[in-house]
Design a protein around this nucleic acid. Structure first.
Lengths: 233, 233
DNA sequence: TTGTTTATGCGAACGTTGTTCACTATGCTG
DNA sequence: CAGCATAGTGAACAACGTTCGCATAAACAA
């Protein structure tokens, strides 16, 4: 990609900045993620960083992109731990990997997944951002696998609220129309449940009742499986 | 409470500070929630505020408490819209009210429910904070109502993972031992699903697929109802 | 090789933030 | 009335994000 020497050096510095920022984030928390601190630990003047980033916000946005790439790779690796003959197992592997990564990287999680839409909007496939789509397609892909392998009981289109059907049609068109709307509902519900379970645990908002939420997480996964293995009636 | 004149004046100022902070938060966003800005809009010196609050963090913590009280009152009001003969309807009212309040007050929601455990830890009943317990007991109370009104199918204690049983026993002891452990599981699962669905919507992380997540939210409520109306087998 | 351009970094500065401190009034209390 | 706690002031400090003009070194054209 980077042909000329200059471009290579520039990319290296950019990477070093992001790496330093990342290290600062995990070591000192989000409040320490400051332009001046990054410059300081790199032996640079704060002003110098503005040759590489438009400002503080742009820098953390770039970091979110990196995080999203990293977690996408992690999920794919976890997914490929399980063979294609067991797509449900692949989904479970993804979910568990998502939880474990998030618990191991709470700061990054907060930055990337628990920010308002003001900031970089992400989900499993975000409006803006290529990284987001990649992240989302990992999930969507395995749902397609599951459906192809063994269809389960999903509501027919005319059993869904009309308002929902309209939105799902749009979403389906955007994602290649590979799945029935009912499967998209399962996909979205699954993502919402996973996101919620992980977020509440990362924030510690379950500590009032459970010191170790893992069994509850597994129970949620079991319920998710149950919903997706009801035979077609 | 406040007998002497001085104390009354002090409490009034304290309240005005929190009100100003709140107004600033909703009008300008969390970044504008600054000690100096509050003092400025009140016609005070920044230093003066330190007679009332230990610092910025303590101030937003106090605000979170207020928010928690406010939302608790809102949920109770919504709950009492439905008569005692329909406890499930009361739960649904609470859930919908929680979603609507959160969508109408995203900044407050972010501050109160989407902060790390570093900050004020809250959940439906938090480790620290009386407001949290009040908030949580609204939920727990209606679950008790439902169970008393019509028991549903919950796993027996020996069907639950032993690690979970131990934690649930502790939690049960802390909350008065009024419910079987399986009902506590339903309660916690319900809170996790509600929290997740609302959080993901408030953050806009569902916008990649749905412009209006309300039907999906209703579907989640329906599934919650289903899980809590399976007759005892 | 020489001259020109362009990217990179520096240093200083501005306005903002949270917070502390010495000081001055004001109003309550004995 | 005397004494004292309290509320508020103003100035200061360190740290922040950001901008500007100036140097320097690398890349390129002649």
């Amino acid at each position: 990609m980077a042909s000329t020497r200059r471009e290579r050096a520039r990319d290296a510095t950019t990477a070093e900045i992001k790496a330093t920022a990342r290290a600062l984030l995990v070591a000192e928390g989000p409040d320490a993620l400051t332009v001046r601190a990054i410059a300081r630990t790199m032996g640079l003047t704060p002003a110098a960083l503005y040759r590489y980033f438009g400002g503080h916000e742009e820098l953390v946005t770039a970091m979110c992109g990196d995080v999203l790439d990293e977690i996408t790779a992690t999920l794919e690796a976890a997914r490929d731990t399980v063979g294609l003959e067991d797509p449900m197992g692949r989904l479970m592997a993804i979910c568990r990997a998502f939880r474990e990564w998030s618990l191991a990287h709470p700061r990054e999680y907060q930055l990337t997944f628990a920010s308002m839409i003001d900031k970089p909007l992400v989900g499993p496939g975000s409006d803006q951002g290529e990284d987001g789509i990649a992240f989302g397609s990992v999930f969507l892909g395995v749902f397609a696998e599951i459906w192809a392998h063994r269809p389960f009981n999903v509501p027919a289109d005319d059993q869904l609220p009309p308002a929902l059907v309209l939105q799902l049609r749009e979403f389906s068109a955007r994602t290649g129309e590979i799945l029935p709307l009912g499967v998209l509902v399962a996909y979205l519900s699954g993502w919402v449940r996973l996101y919620g379970a992980v977020t509440i645990e990362v924030f510690g908002h379950l500590g009032f009742a459970l010191a170790d939420p893992e069994p509850m997480f597994e129970a949620m996964l079991a319920d998710m499986r149950r919903a997706m293995t009801t035979p077609v009636s």
